[in-house]
């Protein structure tokens, strides 16, 4: 456990000292959402109608941005091979790095989302659910993304390939995430959507590090 936390701490320190990943993800998220009023027109009713979906799609894309470098730098400078030799199982390494990735890129997205919801004139009933769905959903994005990042390690055009592999797997998260907010805005209960989303998280939490570690073993072999 101590090793696990130390690894999370190391990744966080690296991310914070280099400083760019978190800010770039949030800036991309904001810009992506801000484009929509220009694209579909500033009509408040239309914006309010599409706000949940737009925010969720933008969050998906923003979390994709830094995924490519989740294992890339460690793979290139050889520290990944050292990590695979330590007593800490590779599954725990993947989980630690995913957790650090989520803390750096996922949390700022959650913090920025209500502001964007105001810009898009979203109905007030959806704000709590928006934050809740993102809080459950963004860890899933990081977990699934970790599999893709491990698979494409050392591939040609890894970044593009990564999005091609991962985006189809993101679709269920998007459906239930945006569906919960829509339900809350329309006066229905968002509970079933939230439960399904939490179910995906409960399945991804043990399975994704396992698959990611299997993929990493192929890469460092």
């Amino acid at each position: 456990m101590n090793r696990f936390l130390r690894l999370v701490g190391r990744d966080l320190r690296l991310a914070l000292r280099q400083g760019s990943d978190a800010t770039i993800a949030v800036m991309f998220f904001v810009l992506c959402v801000v484009l929509f009023p220009f694209g579909v027109g500033p009509e408040p009713n239309i914006l309010a109608r599409i706000a949940p979906g737009v925010i969720w799609v933008a969050a998906l894309l923003a979390s994709l941005l830094s995924l490519e470098r989740l294992f890339q730098t460690d793979y290139e400078d050889g520290s990944l091979e050292l990590m695979s030799l330590t007593a800490l199982p590779l599954e725990a390494v993947v989980l630690a790095k995913t957790l650090a990735h989520w803390l750096v890129t996922g949390l700022p997205l959650i913090a920025a989302a209500p502001l964007l919801a105001v810009l898009l004139n979203m109905d007030g009933a959806g704000f709590g659910v928006l934050v809740l769905t993102l809080a459950i959903g963004t860890p899933i994005l990081s977990l699934i993304g970790a599999i893709g990042a491990a698979l494409t390690l050392g591939a040609r055009r890894g970044g593009v390939l990564l999005s091609l592999l991962i985006l189809p797997l993101y679709i269920p998260v998007l459906i239930f995430g945006a569906g919960a907010i829509d339900a809350a805005i329309n006066g229905l209960t968002p509970r079933p959507h939230l439960l399904l989303l939490a179910g995906i998280l409960a399945a991804a939490l043990p399975l994704a590090p396992w698959a990611g570690a299997a993929a990493l073993r192929q890469a460092v072999e």
Binding site: L151, G154, A155, R156, R157, G158, L161, L164, L165, P168
Partner: peptide, 9 residues
Amino acid sequence: GYMALVNAF
């Protein structure tokens, strides 16, 4: 995605 991944290395 599978076909793209297999041919990417």
